[in-house]
């Protein structure tokens, strides 16, 4: 899966326009990065990447790159 495809998935769960995220985007700057987006991310990780994401790990994410790294 390409980085672009992964970014598109994150934009979808945060209901952002296509192209609005890049790897360096800081999560704390995103109004759309809220508790509901976190739930959607847990579901995405489980479904698409077969990974269990905990609340503690989510808190450690600072940038979009951190999420992309977890997807590896």
């Amino acid at each position: 899966m390409t980085t672009q495809e992964k970014l598109a998935m994150l934009e979808e769960i945060m209901e952002l326009e296509s192209g609005s995220l890049n790897a360096g985007t800081k999560l704390e700057d995103l109004e759309e990065w809220n508790s509901m987006a976190a739930l959607a991310l847990i579901a995405l990780m489980d479904e698409e990447f077969n990974k269990i994401l905990t609340g503690k790990q989510i808190k450690e994410f600072k940038t979009v790159q951190d999420i992309l790294d977890f997807m590896e």
Binding site: S35, A38, L39, I42, A43, D46, I52, L53, T54, G55, I58
Partner: peptide
């Protein structure tokens, strides 16, 4: 909420 959610989907 996040931990409960992880439980419910697994």
């Amino acid at each position: 909420g996040t931990d409960v959610f992880t439980f419910t989907i697994t």
